Simulated assay, not measured.
Amino acid sequence: MTRNTRVFSHCGSRIFEISGDEQGGYRLQEFARKYDAEEEVTYEIKVMSNLGGLFGDFDTALKEAERLAQQ
């Protein structure tokens, strides 16, 4: 069973998503939350960054996401 979890930065503009894969590993993806004043809508864009590759267990991936959210 895979878990998808999101960790938000203090300001809420950075989001780190932990997603499981079929082999039992976990990956981190970063998203940035932006507000478009003209359209009056908030949207998320995927940030193309290397967040440490594949993690062997959920707890390790979660700790890394929390660390990144603190920065």
Rank of each mutant, 00 (worst) to 15 (best):
N4P: 03
C11E: 10
L54A: 01
G25A: 09
R6Y: 06
Q23W: 05
F8K: 11
A32M: 08
E40L: 06
S19L: 06
T60L: 09
F8W: 13
L62S: 07
T2P: 14
G20F: 06
Y26L: 00
S13A: 01
Y35V: 08
R3Y: 07
K34C: 11
S49D: 13
V7S: 04
V7E: 04
T60M: 09
T5R: 14
K46Y: 01
E17C: 11
N50S: 10
I18F: 08
G53D: 06
T5V: 12
T2D: 10
F55I: 01
D21Q: 06
E30R: 11
M1R: 10
D36S: 12
Y35G: 03
D59M: 06
F55T: 03
G52S: 02
R67F: 13
E40S: 13
E17I: 00
R67A: 12
F55R: 01
E22N: 11
Q70S: 15
E44V: 00
Q29D: 10
L51R: 07
E40P: 00
D57S: 02
A61L: 08
Q70A: 15
R27H: 15
Y26G: 02
R6F: 07
I45M: 12
F58R: 02
N4D: 13
T5Q: 14
G12K: 03
F58W: 07
K34M: 07
D57A: 01
N50T: 04
K63P: 00
K63G: 02
G25E: 10
L62R: 12
T2Y: 07
M1Y: 09
Q23N: 12
G52R: 02
Q29L: 07
E39D: 13
G25D: 12
I45N: 09
E44G: 01
L28Y: 05
I15C: 12
L62C: 06
L28V: 04
G52I: 05
R27F: 15
V47Q: 13
K46R: 15
K34P: 00
Y43N: 06
E38T: 11
G53K: 04
M48H: 10
I45S: 14
M1S: 14
E39H: 08
E22W: 11
E66H: 07
Q29F: 11
G20N: 09
F8L: 15
Y43I: 08
L68E: 03
V41I: 14
A69P: 03
F31W: 14
D57P: 00
V47H: 04
S9T: 04
R3A: 10
I15N: 12
D36G: 00
Q23V: 07
R6S: 14
N4W: 01
I45W: 03
F55S: 01
L62Q: 07
Y43P: 08
K46L: 11
L54I: 07
F31N: 09
R67T: 12
Q71S: 13
